[in-house]
């Protein structure tokens, strides 16, 4: 697979981080299939990737959170004639307060970020295992590293997904394929538009996209994006509860 165009499937392709990664893969001449809900937006992204150099950029309009992952992925991969990268990039932030008072709201966060994403991950793992090649890249979050009062519902959904991907990485390592969990810190995207964005720790989607593309080629099963978050989260995990519980983090 060194000379042929890389075959890439992106789930949640209209997310800012996914689009940033897609632009890099397009520039390198990749063949991309974009999966998302909004046809007009997928069309706009596909046209852009084609101009940027993608060997092909097509899209499938469906709701990842409710689709039959196994069947849909099988069709997409059959059309591509195999797959080199599956990127799982969709997710919702939800609202912590609403999730605490409305059970359906919390269930919706878990269904989108964990239950449905896990189905896609397991489907992709089966494909990659059969191929004995390729990489599953999943966007998790530093919020999954320690439950905090400000966003533990979202954090729990990403933590669960993280353990699943960790297990898939273990399984695929023995089969010639890989799985990588990306843990972005603060990223300046429409998903975080409601959060006050200030300070040096906020990264642009383009930076996270570059890290994803690199992680799809090589590196460890858990990639903090940018790398500084590995150390920040290490400190946050080490703070004793007696101290941590006095904060509003």
């Amino acid at each position: 697979m060194t000379d042929a165009a890389k075959r890439i499937v992106i789930l949640g392709a209209t997310s800012a981080i996914a689009e940033a990664a897609a632009r890099r893969w397009a520039k390198a001449g990749g063949r991309l299939v974009l999966v998302g809900r909004n046809t007009e937006r997928l069309e706009a992204i596909a046209a852009d990737l084609a101009v940027r150099g993608a060997a092909a950029a097509t899209f499938v309009a469906l709701d990842c959170a409710s689709a039959d992952a196994e069947a849909e992925l099988a069709t997409i991969v059959a059309d591509l004639g195999g797959v080199d990268v599956v990127l799982v990039a969709y997710g919702v932030l939800g609202d912590q307060r609403t999730a605490e008072t409305t059970p359906q709201a919390a269930a919706e966060v878990f269904r989108t970020n964990f239950t449905s994403a896990a189905a896609w991950c397991l489907a992709a793992a089966n494909v990659l295992e059969r191929q004995r090649s390729g990489t599953l890249v999943v966007i998790g979050s530093v919020a999954g590293d320690r439950g905090r009062l400000s966003n533990y519902v979202y954090g729990a959904s990403k933590a669960g997904l993280g353990v699943l991907v960790q297990g898939i990485a273990h399984r695929l390592a023995q089969q010639g394929a890989r799985a990588v969990l990306i843990k972005p810190g603060f990223v300046d995207t429409p998903m975080t538009a409601a959060v006050a964005r200030k300070g040096l720790l906020w990264a642009k989607p383009a930076r996270i996209g570059a890290i994803i593309v690199k992680a799809a080629d090589k590196g460890g099963p858990v990639v903090y994006a940018p790398g500084i978050w590995r150390w920040i989260m290490l400190v946050i995990r080490l703070v004793p509860a007696s101290l941590f519980h006095r904060t509003k983090l």
Partner: peptide
């Protein structure tokens, strides 16, 4: 600046 896509060339 978020609308920075190429439509056709």
């Amino acid at each position: 600046t978020g609308l920075d896509r190429l439509i056709a060339f």
